[in-house]
């Protein structure tokens, strides 16, 4: 760990003209194409979350303490700010499949949401071509409803029209492999079945810029293989793919570039082998 960090900081020190903190260890594996079109430009992005209800040591959530706080005119300590992404910059090009790795809480999911335009930046900006979409409809689904209703609801939430929903419906049911359970409420599903249905719904739509957050490690082995194939197909259709996963094999197989996030900053950015090797060491 110490060794690799030292090495990194040395490389960093040798880049006087670089305004950014990331380290490019390797050029593109492919020969540089003449028309490499940028699809996503992230420019010195900072994201700050406000978290409510994060109790400090002084306040353990009882009414008397809350009153004292008001009387003492202290602000609102249970509102905490979390600086999740701290100055990230990179350019993604057409045809890129970028894996994002990092520990829990390193800002991976936040970064994806910012690229998708779902979290407003505190400073800096994300520039995109078209509408990047996050692969995930979980939040729109309702556990009490049948799979059938959830498929329709999820498709509409992603912006499909009734005709497209009709076309995709059978495909979604087939792909999820839940069979007659589609008539039952989702609350009766096993966690694997639920995950399969969610993935089937989410992947029913084609995207220009596709953001995938930990969607692969769901279901049994058979479904895993099926979903990896589906991701591959979506990658071919999409211009650019971002993939967040803890499963490094998936990233190594799918991606041609890996960004390593550490505490909200880019620690390393380059081809999968080099970055993943460094990441495994660290």
């Amino acid at each position: 760990m110490a060794e690799s960090t030292e090495e990194l900081s040395r490389v960093k020190a040798e880049e006087p003209g670089t305004p950014r903190a990331d380290v490019r260890v390797h050029p593109d594996p492919e020969p540089p194409q003449v028309t490499r079109t940028p699809t996503v430009v992230v420019d010195d992005l900072h994201i700050i979350y406000r978290v409510y209800g994060a109790a400090t040591e002084a306040e353990k959530g009882n009414a008397a303490n809350a009153l004292m706080r008001l009387l003492k005119r202290q602000g609102r300590p249970q509102m905490k700010e979390v600086h999740a992404v701290r100055g990230v910059s990179f350019v993604a090009y057409h045809g890129d499949a970028i894996g994002i790795v990092g520990r829990n809480g390193s800002g991976k999911s936040t970064l994806l949401r910012a690229i998708a335009g779902l979290l407003p930046p505190h400073s800096g900006a994300v520039y995109t071509d078209g509408q990047p979409s996050l692969l995930g409809v979980n939040a729109a689904l309702m556990r009490e409803l049948t799979g059938e209703r959830n498929i329709v609801l999820g498709c509409y939430a992603m912006g499909l029209n009734p005709k497209q929903v009709k076309e995709k419906y059978d495909d979604i049911v087939d792909f999820s492999g839940i069979g007659e359970f589609v008539q039952f409420p989702m609350s009766t599903y096993s966690s694997g079945m639920g995950a399969r249905l969610r993935f089937a719904i989410a992947s029913a739509k084609a995207h220009d810029v596709l953001l995938i957050d930990e969607a692969l490690a769901t279901g049994d082995r058979d479904f895993k293989r099926k979903s990896q194939e589906r991701i591959k197909k979506m990658r071919e259709e999409a211009g650019t793919v971002f993939l967040v996963a803890h499963n490094l094999d998936v990233i190594e197989e799918t991606c041609n570039r890996v960004i390593w996030l550490h505490k909200g900053k880019i620690k390393m950015d380059g081809d999968p082998k080099t970055v993943l090797a460094a990441y495994n060491k660290g």
């Binding site: 003209g17 940028p38 430009v41 010195d44 335009g117 900006a125 995109t128």
Partner: peptide
């Protein structure tokens, strides 16, 4: 060195702010 600012690169390729 002397790389153009990212905002200009984005503008040149017709990319727009996500938000």
């Amino acid at each position: 060195k002397g790389q153009e600012p990212l905002a200009e690169l984005a503008a040149r390729h017709g990319l727009r702010r996500a938000i």
